[in-house]
Each structure stands twice: as C-alpha cells, then as structure tokens.
Amino acid sequence: MRWLAGGALVLVLAVVGLVVWLSDDGVDLRARVYTQSSACLLTPAAGVSDPAAAPVWAGMQQASLATNGKVSFLEVDGRQTAENAATYLATLAQGDCDLVLVAGAGPVAALEQSSASFPQIHFVSVGGSKAQANVSVVADSDANAVSAQVKSLVESALRSGE
C-alpha cells in the first residue's frame, strides 16, 4: 500500500511539473514592460528626496504606472547655480527624454536660461515662473496639487510618445 501511495505522489508531481514546464514561456510575470516613451527629472543635489522634487517624482511615478512609460531623474551635483545645472539639463535634453522636468532653484534657473537652445524638447518647470513656447510651468506650492499636475502632464507626454 505504501508503494502505491508513493507512486501516486510521484505521478502527481510529474504531472504538475509537466504543466508548469509547458506553460512557462520564459517571461518573468513580475517584469514590467516599458514603452519607448520617457520623462526625465532634473533635481537638486538631494535628488528625489529634495522637498521641491519629491512631489514631482511622485507624480511621475504615478504617470509611469498608468502608461508604462519610463521615468528617471538626474541630480545636479556641486553648486546649485544656473551655470552648473545647465550642463545637467543639456544631458537630459540631448538624451532620450520625451519630456524634461526641472525642480529646485538651480535646475529651474538653468531651464529659464537655456530652454531656447532646445526648441524640439518640451520642458516642465516646477516652481518656475517663465513659461515659453516649449516650457510649461507648474506654479502650485501644494505638494498634492503639484503631483496631480505633473502626473497629468507626464501621462499626456508619455502617451503621445508611444
């Protein structure tokens, strides 16, 4: 009787193993497949933990979940001046970003000085005051409102870039 129970167990395990093996198409079900669209954030040195950047990053992540577009950020290292931040801004503008967002004094000042150098790129200035042809401004100071506005802008950009 023991050998019959052992045989039945081996048969059940073999069937389960065969079903799993035949149904496995090599795709990790936890993996996230992104579109080619991307939005990039230029932050002060503290990165996305900076008070000016945190609500922006939260809105970008929500937009990424809704669209499967890629989001990333780049920190301005060193002095937080327009001149120093302009180099980092140029890196994002010349990269693969469909939309470039800036938050914090240095990044915003860099954008206000150099956005005209990148007319093909659309920018979002969070906390800035100078809207231009290729620059949208999110001027709200409430973190939840900033996140909501950023989410909307990023979703729109990521969907149009698909």
Rank of each mutant, 00 (worst) to 15 (best):
G69L: 02
A58I: 03
G47L: 09
D50K: 11
G47I: 05
A46N: 11
L41S: 09
L41H: 10
L41N: 07
G47Q: 09
P51W: 13
Q62F: 02
N68V: 00
L41T: 06
A52V: 03
W57A: 12
G69I: 00
Q61L: 14
A54Y: 10
V71Q: 01
L41F: 13
L41E: 05
A45P: 06
A58F: 11
A58L: 14
T67D: 00
A46H: 09
G47W: 10
V71F: 04
G47M: 08
L41V: 09
N68K: 14
P51Q: 14
G69V: 00
T43K: 10
G59V: 04
V71Y: 03
V71S: 02
V71K: 03
A45T: 11
V48Y: 13
G59T: 05
V48M: 12
A66V: 01
S64E: 03
A58D: 13
A54N: 11
M60C: 09
S64W: 02
T43H: 10
G69H: 02
A45G: 13
P44G: 12
P55V: 07
P44Q: 12
A58T: 14
K70F: 01
G69M: 02
P51A: 14
P55A: 11
P55T: 08
V56R: 05
P44I: 02
P55R: 11
T67P: 01
W57D: 05
V71G: 01
A63P: 04
P51V: 12
P44W: 02
A46P: 03
M60P: 04
L41K: 12
T43D: 05
W57H: 14
K70T: 00
A52R: 15
A54K: 15
S49H: 14
G59A: 10
V48K: 13
V71I: 10
W57E: 04
V71P: 00
Q61S: 09
A46D: 13
K70Y: 03
A58P: 03
V48A: 12
A66G: 03
D50G: 06
Q62T: 06
P51R: 15
D50M: 09
L65H: 06
Q62P: 00
D50P: 05
V71N: 01
L41M: 12
T43F: 10
Q61C: 02
P51E: 13
A45D: 14
L65V: 01
P44D: 08
L65D: 04
P44T: 13
N68C: 00
S64M: 03
K70C: 00
S49L: 14
